[in-house]
């Protein structure tokens, strides 16, 4: 019996996809494996151990990395929170306030941080802080991070808000809710998955940033990426692989959370009118 040819299939596309996944994951997996290498050489395999993780937490450079990690997490939490609030307000303006002057211009402005090359943003921000005589440090990093976190927070929040019909707010107002109550009691709870998603993405993006941070961090202030970069300049050492693996775990945890937050929203949105 001749099988009907499946026009969706092209020979070799599966192989390319698997190659693609291999290329994406191989380096990360290798580094994760070598982070458990007992040998002080990064080349030779000396058996499994946790010594480099111990080194990260209690070794010579532990203090430096701990301080960098605290900086990174503080900045990411503050930048992501601020960006999420701003992005939620902006999404409400763009998607719930009808037409107003500057609305289409605002789309361009919000997505500007995505369009300007990072190195250009870095240079511009450094020059700006220098020109106004602003002392670079934690605060300058935070401000720069808020700027590029806004579009990342905005996208999932706006996507979610677009999926919520305004008839719910109208129903709330019809039932004597003020506009603020309609926002707080109806729109905000319905948007939660998008907001969580937006916050988590902004958090990761902030945690990730190297180029802009490196420009505006000022002397003596390090975040994890700048500390790692500084260390790698003298060659890759096993403790860097341990830190990398830890950071990798944090990122993957956050993305997975964000993914499930989005899924949760989808399930809620689909409204099966099942027979009961």
């Amino acid at each position: 019996m001749a099988r009907k040819p499946d026009l969706r299939r092209f020979p070799g596309f599966l192989a390319v996809t698997l190659l693609c996944l291999f290329l994406l994951y191989a380096p990360l997996v290798i580094v994760a494996i070598y982070s458990f290498n007992d040998s002080p050489s990064i080349t030779l395999w000396g058996g499994v151990s946790l010594r480099w993780y111990e080194d990260v937490f209690w070794g010579l450079e532990a203090d430096k990395f701990k301080r960098a990690a605290i900086n990174s997490l503080t900045i990411a939490a503050a930048a992501a929170t601020t960006a999420t609030v701003i992005a939620t307000m902006a999404a409400t303006a763009m998607l719930r306030a009808g037409q107003f002057r500057g609305r289409s211009f605002s789309f361009g402005l919000i997505s500007l941080p995505l369009m300007v090359p990072e190195i250009v943003t870095a240079v511009a921000t450094l020059i700006f802080f220098s020109a106004i005589g602003f002392q670079t440090g934690i605060l300058s990093i935070l401000i720069a991070h808020i700027v590029f976190c806004i579009p990342f927070a905005y996208l999932p929040i706006a996507a979610r808000m677009e999926g919520i019909e305004d008839v719910y707010e109208q129903a709330a107002q019809d039932l004597y809710a003020t506009k603020w109550q309609a926002f707080r009691l109806i729109l905000l709870p319905l948007m939660t998955p998008g907001i969580v998603s937006g916050f988590l993405l902004a958090f990761i993006i902030s945690l990730d940033d190297f180029i802009i941070t490196n420009f505006v961090k000022g002397a003596g202030v390090e975040t994890l990426p700048t500390a790692i970069f500084g260390a790698v300049k003298q060659g890759i050492k096993p403790n860097i692989m341990a830190i990398s693996t830890l950071l990798l775990m944090v990122s993957i945890t956050f993305v997975t959370l964000s993914y499930f937050a989005g899924r949760m929203g989808q399930n809620r949105k689909s409204n099966p009118t099942g027979e009961t």
């Binding site: 019909e165 008839v167 109208q170 129903a171 709330a172 109806i186 949105k269």
Partner: peptide
């Protein structure tokens, strides 16, 4: 109002 698609708060 009873809305066309009901608009029950999900």
């Amino acid at each position: 109002t009873v809305f066309q698609q009901y608009a029950l708060f999900p």
